Simulated assay, not measured.
Amino acid sequence: MSTLPNERSVRSTPEGLLWEPSERWVRGTKGDVTVVDSRHPVLVWEPELPVPQYAFPREDVRQDLLRPAKHPRTGTHTGSQIFYDLEAGGELVENAAWTFPAEDLAGHVAFEWFRHPGRGLDHWYEEEEEIFIHPRDPHKRVDAMPSSRHVRIEIDGTTVADTRRPVLLFETSLPTRYYLPREDVRLDLFTPTDHHTGCPYKGTASYWSWRGEADVPPNIVWTYPDPLPAVHVVQGLLAFYNEAVDITVDGERLERPVTPFSAMLSRRRRT
């Protein structure tokens, strides 16, 4: 059993970590081997990461599968110095797990997720639902709502989409995303790519890139062909990065926001 206090408010540590007990039943597997099986996980937020991760009481972890890391990746997690390699199902995964230095989190082990391919477990489950990329943040909401607003999107002065039947997706700490019917988007001006991303709230997205000569980052348009049930209303609709296109809503031109995606889009331009 975890030694953490039975409190529901987010707590902080001198190392700058935030943590909160969770009541979800969480399991993680590598191949056919269950590595983690916990009914007392803890959500941890590191200062430099916008998403949470789980840490688990040691008794809920197959410690017999962990080995002191041969090449510990110190500096990759806040203050952490102790890292473990994982040996399961005939496979060795380096730096698959680590411990936080905070006294409040003593006796807990954290694992890499899909943000670092090849360094984490294969599958994670909350209750009976598989989850992807990172744990869902209990303090974050994602709401998709059909609307009759007039939305027009331009790239370098060219209107690439115009609709009065968008779906607005509101996600905590991010700008509103406008999802548009395909027939209201000039898809002839874009080329499909093999780029895909995953989201724990929405699912797996496919992308298109701009075919014109304007300085636009690749993979500027995306869709969720098979979204998660909570946002099923966006299925097959198309969205653009507000950070890189001009969006006008009900006659009002929106300012381009600065978000964690802005730096990513800038790097795409350079590459």
Rank of each mutant, 00 (worst) to 15 (best):
S266P: 00
W98M: 02
K140M: 09
F261R: 07
P181E: 10
S206L: 11
G118R: 13
D162Q: 04
T259M: 06
G16M: 11
H108F: 11
T271E: 15
V245T: 09
H196N: 09
P257A: 08
D162Y: 03
E129M: 03
I133P: 00
E15K: 06
G31A: 06
F132D: 01
P192F: 14
A55S: 10
T76K: 03
T78E: 13
E87P: 02
Y241V: 11
Q81F: 01
Y125L: 10
P200D: 02
L187M: 15
Q53M: 07
R152W: 00
E91I: 13
R165S: 15
G251Y: 00
T248Q: 00
Q235M: 03
F56E: 01
R268T: 08
R136G: 03
W210K: 03
I220L: 14
M1L: 12
L265V: 10
E7N: 13
H71C: 08
V109K: 06
P200C: 08
K202H: 00
L237W: 12
D64F: 11
P200G: 05
R119K: 12
V249F: 05
D188F: 09
P146N: 08
G120W: 14
T204V: 13
S147M: 10
G118D: 11
F190V: 06
V33P: 02
P146W: 13
A110R: 03
G203C: 04
G16T: 09
T191Y: 03
L49T: 13
A263E: 15
L187P: 02
F240Q: 04
R182N: 06
A214W: 02
P14G: 11
V245C: 07
D32E: 07
L121C: 13
W19P: 00
P57I: 12
S266T: 12
D137I: 06
S262Q: 02
R119F: 09
S22Y: 13
L105P: 03
K202D: 00
I247M: 00
F56Y: 08
F114W: 15
V93T: 15
V36Y: 05
P47F: 12
N242D: 14
M145N: 14
T74R: 07
D85Q: 03
E112I: 02
L180H: 00
F132S: 02
D188Y: 08
V142I: 06
R165Y: 12
P218A: 14
Y54C: 03
T176P: 06
R267L: 14
R164L: 04
S262C: 01
D156C: 06
L105F: 10
F132K: 04
I220D: 09
E15W: 14
L121W: 14
N219V: 07
V249A: 03
L86I: 10
E183F: 15
E130I: 00
T223H: 13
L174C: 08
I155C: 05
